[in-house]
């Protein structure tokens, strides 16, 4: 058990850092603008992140499994560690980075190291979603912004009522966003461990069975929630009050649209619904919530009639798409080499 927990530690660390950073994408503006107290936001975020991870986390991690089924715990540990190191170094170097992209690069690094083939069609599908994610968020934000604007302008709601409704909506949408974040991003945290770790199923009164994967995701979800409670306050306050000044209503648009995108990329129900109706399904892939937020903010800018799109922002994101997986892949390869040849651990079977 201790060995398992030790090997899971890199994934749990990734989860902690995800909670510390990405919770701000969901509740940052609401907390920063003092519409919601941090403790309320953190509690809702933590609970719904865990539910999302346990209930709907398998879709996106299944796709990562298809990319590379890491078959030893030590290998999974190293891959998650490589992703974490990539995120750490790129953040230090102030380069745009996403855990989702880092983990994909690290898995490909494991494929190279172990000599397993990398399914290029899966890689293409994943890369397409990285582009699609901010683009969809932009589109949703554009539409939702106009719906909100027209509604508020024509409903003649009192300022105080708009404020009350916005607070409630921020909580509801925040819960949905947290659920979607948990469902989508748990694959980054625990996806690589799915094949290699096996816990015995736990049955609760014979009615509910918690599978090995769900237990793994529960652990990851708890790690994310701990990250939210212990370290996200500063990030939330910074996001809400200094980097991007969003009004509570525009914040609501951003959170709604980015949550919808995260949900689309993680909902197996929607995936199956699309397939059964002959509609091309949206692949279930972990995507970057930060990039969804940036896309949504650009969408709002466009809805407001901004003529000068900040191409440098889009350029920086694109750089992240290219550099993050490459750097992560290299780090993964090197760390796997060290684990195998210095620490004499079996990193693949």
């Amino acid at each position: 058990m201790v060995t398992v927990l030790f090997f899971l530690s890199s994934g749990l660390f990734l989860g902690w850092s995800l909670g510390a950073n990405d919770a701000a994408n969901i509740f940052g503006a609401a907390v920063g603008s003092r519409m919601i107290k941090f403790t309320t936001a953190a509690t809702i975020c933590g609970i719904f992140l865990i539910i999302g991870a346990v209930v709907s986390g398998s879709g996106a991690s299944h796709t990562l499994g298809k990319l590379g089924a890491i078959n030893t715990l030590a290998g999974a540990f190293t891959v998650a560690l490589a992703a974490a190191l990539t995120v750490f170094f790129m953040t230090k170097a102030t380069l745009p980075v996403s855990t989702s992209q880092a983990i994909v690069g690290a898995i490909i690094g494991w494929n190279f190291f172990s000599g397993m083939p990398t399914d290029l069609s899966i890689v293409t599908r994943i890369v397409m979603t990285w582009v699609l994610c901010p683009a969809l968020a932009m589109f949703f934000a554009f539409i939702i912004f106009w719906i909100f604007k027209l509604y508020i302008e024509n409903s003649k709601l009192h300022l105080f009522r708009i404020d009350s409704y916005t607070r409630i909506a921020l909580i509801v949408v925040g819960a949905f966003g947290s659920y979607s974040l948990g469902a989508n991003n748990i694959a980054n945290v625990m996806g690589v461990f799915v094949t290699s770790s096996s816990f015995p199923d736990i049955s609760i009164g014979g009615y509910v069975t918690i599978t090995s994967t769900q237990q793994l995701f529960l652990l990851g979800g708890i790690a994310i929630a701990v990250g939210v409670f212990t370290y996200s306050k500063r990030v939330m306050t910074t996001v809400g009050s200094s980097i991007i000044t969003l009004s509570p209503i525009t914040a609501l648009v951003v959170v709604t649209s980015s949550s919808m995108v995260l949900f689309l990329f993680s909902s197996e129900y929607l995936y199956n619904f699309f397939v059964s109706h002959g509609i091309p399904p949206i692949p279930l892939v972990p995507v970057s919530s930060s990039q969804a937020v940036v896309g949504a903010i650009i969408g709002i800018g466009m809805a407001k009639g901004a003529r000068n799109l900040h191409l440098n922002v889009i350029g920086r994101i694109s750089l992240g798409w290219v550099f993050t997986p490459i750097i992560s892949c290299i780090i993964s390869f090197i760390t796997l080499f060290f684990m195998q040849n210095v620490f004499m651990t079996v990193v693949y079977l």
């Binding site: 603008s33 519409m35 300022l159 404020d163």
Partner: peptide
């Protein structure tokens, strides 16, 4: 009561 944080100064 921390109401309308964005507009309370104006109000």
């Amino acid at each position: 009561h921390m109401l309308i944080p964005e507009a309370r100064g104006d109000v």
